[in-house]
C-alpha cells in the first residue's frame, strides 16, 4: 500500500513531467541581494536612530542608557510606573545582573514556573540583536530562555546592546544562520496588536500590551 507521502510525491512528479521552468535556481549571491533594503545604515549612530524611530512608530518605548547601572534605574522606574511587583526574568546573565539590582521586586525564572508566569506583572529578557530597518528585536531560543517571558506578561522589557543592532532584515537572518538556527528565532516589533474588530487597533490582545526597550550603549 502506498503511503500518502509517496502518493503526493508521485502526483507532483507526474504533473511536473516535461515541465521546463523558465527560471533557473538563483545563485546564493543573487538570492542574498538585499532588494528593498534601506541604505545609509553603516554607522552605528544611524542604526540606533532608525531602530528607535521605527520601533517608536509602532508603539514601542525606547530608553537609551550608558551602562548597566543606568539600565537598572530605568527598569526600576518602568516597574514603578506600571506598579509591577512580580517580575519574570529570562536566564540571560545580563538580565539577571540588571534585574537582580532591584531588591524591592520579586523576581523568578519565567521559563520555570508557569503558574507564577501567568500571574506576573512584567517580563524582562535580553535580545541577541536589534534590526534598524524595522525596529525589531531578534531573540534566539538557544541564547536565552525568552519564549514565555517575552510573551505572557502584560509588559515586556527587553535589554538590547546597541552594538548588536544590525542594519537590515537580511543581516538579521544571516545572524540567525550563523547562530546555528536555534529551534526558535523570534522577531518582535512592538507590542501585540489586533485590528480584527472594525480595524480599530488595540494593543495587548494576547501578548504584551507594552514593550519597553532599554538600549545600552556598550562602549
Amino acid at each position: 500500500m502506498s503511503t500518502a507521502r509517496d502518493a503526493v510525491f508521485a502526483s507532483i512528479r507526474k504533473n511536473l513531467a516535461g515541465v521546463q521552468s523558465a527560471e533557473t535556481p538563483l545563485d546564493r549571491g543573487t538570492a542574498a541581494t538585499r532588494l528593498g533594503a534601506p541604505q545609509g545604515l553603516d554607522e552605528r549612530a544611524a542604526r540606533v536612530e532608525r531602530f528607535t524611530k521605527v520601533l517608536t512608530s509602532v508603539d514601542g518605548r525606547v530608553h537609551r542608557v550608558a551602562n548597566e547601572a543606568e539600565a537598572s534605574e530605568v527598569l526600576r522606574a518602568i516597574a514603578a510606573e506600571h506598579g509591577a511587583r512580580l517580575v519574570a526574568l529570562s536566564d540571560a546573565p545580563q538580565v539577571q545582573r540588571i534585574a537582580g539590582a532591584l531588591a524591592d521586586l520579586e523576581t523568578f525564572d519565567g521559563s520555570r514556573d508557569r503558574a507564577r508566569l501567568l500571574e506576573c506583572d512584567l517580563g524582562v529578557t535580553g535580545a541577541q540583536h536589534g534590526i534598524a530597518e524595522t525596529g525589531t528585536l531578534v531573540l534566539f531560543s538557544e541564547s536565552e530562555r525568552h519564549r514565555l517571558t517575552s510573551l505572557v506578561p502584560p509588559i515586556h522589557v527587553a535589554l538590547v546592546r546597541s552594538s548588536t543592532i544590525v542594519p537590515t532584515l537580511g543581516e538579521a537572518l544571516a545572524e540567525a544562520r550563523r547562530a546555528g538556527l536555534p529551534p526558535l528565532v523570534s522577531f518582535i516589533t512592538g507590542p501585540s496588536r489586533t485590528g480584527d474588530i472594525e480595524l480599530t487597533i488595540v494593543v495587548g490582545v494576547h501578548g504584551p500590551k507594552t514593550l519597553h526597550v532599554i538600549l545600552i550603549d556598550d562602549d
Binding site: V54, V58, E133, T134, T136, L169, A176, L181, L184, V185, S186, F187, I188, T189, G190, P191, S192, R193, G207
Partner: peptide, 8 residues
C-alpha cells in the same frame, strides 16, 4: 513594514 511577530 513588518507584523509584530515572526517565529522561525
Amino acid at each position: 513594514h513588518l507584523t509584530s511577530y515572526q517565529s522561525i
